[in-house]
């Protein structure tokens, strides 16, 4: 049997628009994953700590306020500092194309913008399954 993947869906920053995050959380659940949802207004520190305690394989960050360039890389950096760089971080929200190279370079594995189908996210997770199945 395949290992049960655990995914943390987290909302860093201060915006309260959680429609997308909740949708993704629920859709991933329906796809058979164990999803942990943090709720809104989480600091990068709290997200990293939660990811480690819950021993998740992926962290999905959702942000609509435009603070992604500051907050997404911070989560990756904190995971690295805690020797948890094997946890794969992806992001979603209103993120301009022009910010993507920077975010990728900072270790965000994938960015999903509005209009992305859930199938694309699942495809991404499954493609990375070998990387997290240790």
């Amino acid at each position: 049997m395949n290992k049960k993947l655990r995914i943390l869906i987290a909302k860093p920053g201060l915006d309260g628009h959680d429609r997308g995050a909740k949708y993704v959380a629920r859709a991933l659940k329906d796809a058979g994953y164990e999803v942990i949802y943090t709720g809104i207004r989480q600091s990068p520190e709290a997200i990293a700590q939660t990811a480690i305690q819950e021993d998740v394989d992926f962290v999905g960050l959702s942000l609509l306020s435009g603070a992604h360039n500051e907050l997404f890389p911070r989560v990756v950096q904190l995971l690295r500092e805690k020797q948890a760089s094997d946890i794969i971080v992806f992001g979603g929200g209103v993120i301009p194309e022009s910010d993507m190279p920077f975010l990728k370079e900072q270790g965000i594995a994938a960015i999903f913008t509005p209009g992305t189908s859930i199938a694309a996210i699942i495809e991404f997770i499954e493609a990375n399954r070998p990387r997290v199945s240790h």
Binding site: S43, S65, A67
Partner: peptide, 21 residues
Amino acid sequence: LPTQIGYDSDDARSLGEVGKV
């Protein structure tokens, strides 16, 4: 958002959010 949630711009929680929305 910091203004809407009652944090000053120099609050740690305001990181990245000042003047954004």
